[in-house]
Amino acid sequence: MRHLTGIPCPTCGMTRSFMAIAQGNLFQALAENLFGPLLFASFVIVAVHITLELLTKRQITAFYCHLVKQRKLQILGLFAVFTYYLLRLYNLSQTGEMYFYFINSPLGKLIF
């Protein structure tokens, strides 16, 4: 999305955030994308959970299994991600970066 329009997507910076976590730099990970460390921790928890289920050959029901199924928490999480995204877009628009990225993108070049 960013390559074509110059506008970053909601998950822009997630890969850089994961790379910063892998290098042990939590502050850089949070700077790249606020939800990067949270998603990374979720992946680790899921990997451990699945590994334990495979080793014990039985289904394990943990408290987070019920949490992820609750519609209110799903909506709250989606709201948090899009609020963060809109704040990032607002910040980019205030610094002029979004305009610069847009006019230099393929879509911006096509329009201008």
Rank of each mutant, 00 (worst) to 15 (best):
A29V: 06
A29C: 04
L30A: 02
A31K: 15
A31T: 11
E32W: 08
E32V: 02
N33H: 15
N33D: 10
N33Q: 14
L34V: 03
F35N: 03
F35K: 03
G36S: 05
G36Y: 06
G36I: 12
P37I: 07
P37N: 07
P37L: 05
L38Y: 00
L38N: 00
L39Y: 06
F40A: 10
A41P: 00
S42Y: 03
F43W: 01
F43I: 04
F43V: 03
V44F: 09
V44L: 09
A47R: 15
A47Y: 13
A47T: 15
V48Y: 12
H49C: 02
H49N: 05
H49T: 00
H49S: 02
I50T: 04
I50Q: 06
I50P: 01
L52K: 14
L52A: 04
L54Q: 13
L54M: 12
L54P: 00
L55E: 07
L55S: 09
L55V: 11
T56L: 05
T56V: 10
T56C: 03
K57M: 03
K57R: 15
K57Q: 15
K57L: 08
R58I: 09
R58D: 07
R58L: 07
Q59I: 10
I60A: 05
T61E: 10
T61P: 00
T61W: 03
A62G: 02
F63N: 04
Y64I: 07
Y64V: 02
Y64F: 12
Y64G: 00
C65I: 01
C65W: 10
H66R: 15
L67E: 02
L67G: 00
V68M: 14
V68G: 02
Q70F: 13
Q70K: 10
Q70C: 04
R71H: 14
R71Q: 12
R71A: 09
K72I: 14
K72T: 11
K72Q: 09
Q74R: 15
Q74D: 04
I75K: 11
I75M: 08
L76F: 13
G77Y: 11
L78K: 12
L78I: 00
F79M: 07
V81C: 04
F82K: 05
F82M: 11
T83Q: 04
T83H: 07
Y84R: 07
Y84C: 02
Y85F: 15
L86M: 07
L86V: 09
L86K: 06
L87A: 09
R88M: 10
L89M: 10
Y90R: 14
N91C: 07
N91L: 11
N91A: 13
L92S: 05
L92M: 13
L92W: 13
S93V: 08
S93Q: 08
S93D: 05
Q94S: 12
T95H: 08
T95K: 10
T95V: 12
G96P: 12
E97R: 14
M98T: 07
M98I: 15
M98P: 02
Y99M: 10
Y99D: 04
F100Q: 14
Y101F: 09
F102P: 01
F102Q: 06
